[in-house]
């Protein structure tokens, strides 16, 4: 899809849809999901090995040459996130890292302050940092200043599939940070919500739960791919003029014709 190819964090991505690889009952479906999503970028997590699970390793289910975005899930502080990031990079699959610092087990909301600290440190160490954040303009500015490659505001809490609950806040980020890629991550439950985010001007979206928990994840991935492209095209085309109000009978500028112009 020519319209959706883009460069970010030093990599060429074929799609503005990035998919997560978690919550699948059977990981072997991933290659078909990625193909249907037309994406070459996925997130993965870092965990202690489970000897039994080493038979079918996640990397065997991801096409060679895919761009990996390991996340720091499990980290509750900046320090833990930095540690996980270094471990992830040591795997030798690239220098991207999604900073995810969550100390709240109920809503899984990111801790912006710790995320900023982790981003500062990791950017200094040469990572391409993609911080997952609660959309707050000041935090986003701090992340950009810290050297993040993008900001990833949540649309709604992880796994909730509730759509763009934070739409207005994301709109502010898009308006105030025109030179920063904004990737909406978390909470997108339907393809129409992904299209909505792209229409607003988001650079990309990340989707995990909505695809993994669908009855037919491969079909849902295809739906998301089309929605993301539709949204991006709509944004590029620019919405047309909508004259909503009829001009009232007592015009505000009527006085200009009543008096001689000076």
């Amino acid at each position: 899809m020519m319209t959706t190819a883009w460069e970010i964090g030093g990599q060429k991505l074929s799609s503005r849809l990035i998919v997560g690889t978690g919550k699948y009952g059977d990981q072997s479906i991933l290659p078909r999901v990625m193909a249907a999503a037309q994406t070459n970028a996925v997130t993965v997590a870092v965990r202690r090995i489970n000897p039994a699970g080493m038979q079918e390793h996640i990397l065997d289910c991801i096409p060679k040459g895919a761009v990996l975005m390991p996340n720091t899930s499990g980290a509750r502080t900046a320090e833990e996130a930095v540690r996980i990031a270094r471990l992830a990079r040591a795997a030798g699959c690239g220098d991207w890292i999604k900073v995810e610092v969550i100390a709240d087990a109920r809503y899984l909301l990111p801790d912006n302050a710790e995320t900023i600290k982790a981003t500062e440190q990791l950017a200094r160490e040469g990572f391409q940092v993609f911080p997952y954040m609660n959309p707050d303009l000041y935090a986003a500015r701090a992340l950009v200043a810290a050297g993040a490659a993008a900001v990833m505001p949540l649309g709604a809490p992880i796994g909730s599939n509730r759509g763009l609950q934070t739409k207005e806040m994301i709109r502010i980020l898009l308006g105030e940070l025109p030179d920063t890629p904004v990737i909406v991550d978390a909470g997108i439950g339907r393809p129409s919500e992904a299209a909505e985010a792209m229409e607003m001007g988001a650079a990309g979206v990340m989707v995990n739960t909505a695809i993994a928990s669908a009855n037919d994840p491969v079909l849902m991935a295809e739906a998301f791919a089309r929605a993301v492209e539709a949204g991006r095209l709509a944004y590029l085309a620019g919405a047309g003029a909508r004259r909503e109000e009829a001009v009232a009978s007592s015009p505000l500028t009527g006085f200009l014709s009543r008096e001689a112009n000076r």
Partner: peptide, 10 residues
Amino acid sequence: LEIVTFVGGG
């Protein structure tokens, strides 16, 4: 000793 690897994640 910590032995870690990538697993599926969002």
